[in-house]
Simulated assay, not measured.
Amino acid sequence: MRFVKGFARVTLGIALGYAGFTHLTSSRLEFQAQVPNWVPFSADFVVLASGVVEIVLGLALVFLVKYQVQVGWVVAAFFVAIFPGNISQYVNGIDAFGLDTDRARLVRLFFQPLLVAWALWATGAWRAVRRAR
């Protein structure tokens, strides 16, 4: 099980790092489309900043094994923090990343909690809370 969790943690780290890289390069405009209008910063700033954060979190998932529980909580919180962008994309009917129907955008909303669970499970953060009780 340790190998499976480690593989899941590293895979999530690589995926986050890649997503962060695309925030800064090839998918920058598509990510800007997800930034809710109520965010008090420019969409480009939010995309660039979140891209850097994703790269850092991805690297932390891969390399900071000693702190994986703490990193897991931070990654889970990040996934919760960016969820309003996914909601905004759905509510406003914004096409991006091939999500060009309301149904596709709605289905995507159900994957964010899975990412939160993945981060907590793969890092042992969920188990650490249960042990502390």
Rank of each mutant, 00 (worst) to 15 (best):
A33I: 12
W118F: 08
G17Y: 08
A128D: 00
S42F: 01
I14F: 11
Q89F: 03
T22H: 11
G13A: 06
L12M: 08
N37H: 04
Q34L: 15
L106V: 09
L106M: 14
F21S: 01
L99E: 00
F21G: 01
Q112V: 03
L24R: 05
F45Q: 12
R127N: 08
A104L: 13
V53M: 06
Q68V: 05
A81E: 12
A117W: 12
V116S: 13
D102L: 12
V91F: 15
W121Y: 14
R105F: 06
L16M: 06
V4T: 14
L48I: 13
G98E: 06
S50V: 06
V80H: 00
R9Q: 04
R130S: 12
F7E: 14
Q89P: 03
R2K: 15
K66G: 07
G17E: 05
N37S: 08
V56F: 00
Q68K: 12
L120A: 09
S27E: 14
Q32M: 15
L99V: 03
F79P: 01
H23I: 00
V46M: 06
I14Y: 09
D100F: 00
G98A: 10
A60E: 11
I55V: 10
N37Y: 14
S50F: 09
L99I: 02
V74T: 10
I82R: 02
A77N: 05
L57E: 10
P40Y: 14
R9E: 14
L106I: 12
L99T: 01
S88I: 10
V129F: 13
G6R: 02
V4L: 11
L24M: 08
R105K: 07
K66L: 00
W73V: 08
Q89C: 04
K5A: 03
A104W: 01
G13R: 07
R105T: 00
F45K: 10
F3K: 13
A76T: 03
I14H: 11
L59N: 01
F45L: 11
G13I: 04
F83D: 02
K66E: 08
L12Q: 00
D102N: 02
V69N: 09
F3Y: 15
Q68T: 14
P36L: 14
Q112H: 11
Q89N: 08
L115W: 15
Q70D: 05
R28Q: 10
T22C: 10
A132F: 15
V80P: 04
P36D: 09
A33L: 14
L29V: 09
S26I: 02
T25N: 06
Q70F: 11
V56K: 03
R108C: 03
Y67G: 05
G85P: 08
V53R: 01
A132Y: 14
F97M: 09
V71L: 09
N92T: 07
Y18Q: 10
P40T: 04
P84L: 15
V69P: 03
N37L: 13
Y18K: 12
A8M: 10
L61F: 06
A15T: 15
A96N: 15
L109C: 01
V10H: 04
F45N: 12
L115V: 12
G124L: 02
L61M: 13
